[in-house]
């Protein structure tokens, strides 16, 4: 029986143009939808699968404002059975702060008799891309950690994780529990919520926690948007009719056989 804790972060769903808040420190997300990062979607999928396969439970955790309950409920609808929100403004926290706050919750639960044998996170969140929370959490809890793997399973009490190797092959890790593992998208296809799943998710009480320390912050001074370069594109045409113009270009560049 493996109890899994999976950590997620509410992030803006960036489509095309983005704009910044007046202080230049954040993205103006007022007109945007919100989601979790693709890496975290994979982590949630793996958390639910590992819990089901081993007869354990998957708990989802986020650090964020009240709005982030939307992302917790989505994970509950997929098959997580409990949810914890650490009430804090995620944009004011650095990766070390977030890791510390999560570690405090894990330790507190442990003292209360609930252990998380496996903590899963995304390798990095799509907004800040820090690549640190999982590793910092593992150090805070003194647990082994592997990062950026694409699949995770538990076999005979050992965590087996597989990820891409630098040479294009794959590499396998085996770690004792309790452990921390960060996940990159690509190894599993995240499931969709079912209607009964959504109904059930509505009824779960979200547990709340508060960080017991002041955040040190991330060191962010400001955000900047790159200047869009003036477009100098020549449109050769629309649809298959443009084929002749394209081949003319190929001939001009001398790249045909």
């Amino acid at each position: 029986m493996t109890n899994v804790l999976v950590c997620i972060k509410r992030v803006p769903d960036l489509g095309g143009e983005i704009s910044l808040t007046a202080d230049g420190r954040s993205v103006d997300d007022s007109g945007l939808g919100h989601t979790i990062s693709a890496h975290e979607e994979a982590a949630v999928e793996l958390a639910i699968t590992v819990a089901k396969d081993t007869g354990g439970e998957a708990t989802v955790l986020t650090l964020g404002s009240d709005d982030a309950v939307e992302q917790l409920r989505n994970a509950l609808a997929l098959g997580c059975t409990a949810a914890i929100r650490i009430d804090a403004d995620a944009s004011a926290q650095g990766p070390a702060d977030v890791a510390r706050a999560i570690a405090d919750v894990v330790r507190e639960r442990e003292a209360g008799g609930t252990t998380y044998d496996l903590v899963l996170l995304g390798s990095d969140a799509s907004d800040t891309g820090d690549f640190q929370v999982g590793i910092r959490l593992a150090y805070a809890l003194d647990r082994p950690v592997v990062t950026a793997v694409s699949t995770v399973s538990v076999q005979d009490g050992t965590v087996v994780a597989r990820g891409a190797a630098p040479d294009g092959g794959s590499e396998v890790y085996e770690l004792p529990m309790p452990a921390v593992v960060t996940v990159m998208e690509g190894g599993v296809e995240p499931r969709y919520p079912s209607i009964p799943g959504r109904m059930k998710a509505k009824k779960v009480a979200i547990e709340e926690a508060a960080p017991g320390f002041g955040a040190a912050g991330s060191g962010r001074l400001r955000l900047r948007l790159p200047e869009p370069a003036p477009s100098q594109v020549t449109i050769l045409g629309e649809g298959p009719q443009a084929a002749a113009a394209v081949v003319d270009l190929f001939e001009k560049l001398g790249v045909t056989r």
Binding site: D127, G129, G219, L221, R222, R224, P226
Partner: peptide, 14 residues
């Protein structure tokens, strides 16, 4: 200066 938000923005950081 580092890439954030999937490269849509830069962050200045000290």
């Amino acid at each position: 200066a580092r890439q954030v938000l999937g490269g849509s923005a830069m962050e200045d950081m000290r």
